[in-house]
Design a protein around this nucleic acid. Structure first.
Length: 397
DNA sequence: TCTGGGGTCCTAGGACCC
DNA sequence: TCTGGGGTCCTAGGACCC
């Protein structure tokens, strides 16, 4: 009998409990123990192994709740350097199979195997080969969805978890997706699922049989269209070879940093000092990437979790710490807060363009150039002596 | 000790311009 | 002088994804 995966050309590969798997693979003592990656004060679960998930632990869950749900769990802090090293190796393994690899995140990628299927066998055989290679080389497992469109492959890999493969050929798409809950669809989170449920739409099949107009009235123009496509499996079927973290990928449109305080604060000086730290971090990343941006946005989250944003578009794109921080300060002061308890602040620069394309107006002149020069001196010192070597006076301990 | 941090995209209203 | 449509930019908020 003919292997049904021959009618598919896309693989979606998803590492199983990636962070948790990486953290425990060199620790035999954690083999049969529930493990949660996360921690810190006021944090959330980044990843949990399947033993911890068995107790109801989910990623994104507040750590306090996770510890209550699974008191026996060992909590380990994340090690991002190791995560990205392992991730790069896994991607390399993928690229040895096909050059067309679209990297979604550290633990997820799409592969187009239409060019390699003859050499290495059917897409299903390639999926099994790939899983074996990853396991041999990295001692962690992954799951693979095989289909003819992006979203079906992604749904398939989720159903294949953990440590499995699922093939959904085109002829079986509707029988596969229609029974699923609407919440499984890409782009449907808690809010949209609730909205759809209120309309009496619970399964993907319900969505499929709802007129496009009705859908769009309920959830908006774009999302309505998208859900309609997903429900019939008529979404994107091609991928673009790209790697988010490497030169040649899509350029960033914004860069930002935010931080939750260890304790809520109503002290303007504390908030502004934090914003300076964030502005310095962001502008340094911008200069390393060789970009500048015109719109500065701040985020302020209060103790009750309500969140506001304020933004201001500058006449000229900038990558200068002082300009970003000054703009952020003005935006913060314009909020006119009186003893409001602040939980988190963030600074983001949007509308990024290559710095080389920015004509800095000479009239703005010398002073600002002075600050830009200072930034570059700080960057050089940070490169040589570490990022804590040089910092604004107000950030000295 | 409820609820991180990095992003992207969409919507909607108002300003402004043609 | 009783009323047009686009298009673009800016701002704020919201939803979602990993």
């Amino acid at each position: 009998m003919r292997d049904p995966s021959w009618s598919c050309h896309l693989l979606h590969v998803d590492m199983d409990a990636f962070y948790a798997s990486v953290m425990v693979r060199d620790r035999p003592d954690l083999d049969d123990v529930p493990v949660i990656v996360g921690g810190g004060y006021r944090g959330v679960v980044l990843s949990a192994n399947y033993l911890a998930r068995g107790s109801g632990v989910r990623s994104g869950m507040p750590m306090t709740r996770a510890r209550r749900a699974c008191p026996a769990a060992v909590v380990v802090p994340p090690d991002y350097d190791t995560f990205s090293t392992v991730s790069s190796s896994v991607i390399e393994t993928f690229r040895r199979i096909t050059p067309t690899v679209e990297v979604v995140s550290l633990d997820e990628a799409f592969l187009d195997v239409s060019g390699t299927a003859r050499r290495l066998g059917s897409p299903l055989q390639i999926a099994e080969y790939l899983r074996a290679r990853v396991h041999d080389e990295q001692r962690i497992t992954c799951s693979v969805g095989v289909a003819a469109s992006v979203s079906i492959a992604k749904l398939a890999s989720r159903r294949a978890k953990p440590d499995g493969v699922l093939v959904v050929p085109p002829g079986e798409v509707t029988t596969f997706v229609h029974p699923l809950d609407v919440g499984e669809l890409w782009g449907v989170g808690e809010k949209t699922a609730g909205q759809l449920h209120r309309l009496g739409l619970h399964t993907v099949g319900d969505v499929a049989h709802t007129p496009l107009r009705t859908l769009q009235r309920a959830v908006g123009q774009a999302l309505g269209r998208q859900l309609h496509d997903l429900a019939w499996g008529t979404d994107r079927s091609t991928i673009a070879a790209r790697d988010a973290s490497v030169f040649g990928g899509d350029p960033d449109k914004s860069m930002g940093a935010q931080e939750t305080f260890g304790r809520d604060t109503d002290d303007r000086e504390v908030v502004l000092r934090e914003m300076l730290r964030l502005a310095a971090r962001v502008s340094n990343r911008m200069r390393v990437a060789g970009v500048a941006g015109r719109t500065v946005t701040i985020t302020v989250r209060f103790a009750d979790f309500t969140t506001v944003t304020r933004s201001r578009t500058l006449p000229e794109a900038t990558d200068v710490t002082r300009e970003i921080h000054q703009t952020a300060t003005r935006l913060y002061d314009a909020l006119g807060l009186q003893r409001a308890r602040v939980r988190l602040v963030g600074v983001r620069v949007e509308g990024l363009v290559p710095r080389a394309s920015v004509q800095r107006q000479l009239v703005l002149g010398e002073r600002e150039h002075g600050w830009a020069d200072a930034d570059r001196a700080v960057d050089r010192a940070a490169l040589r002596f570490g990022s804590s070597a040089v910092r604004p006076a107000s950030l000295l301990p």
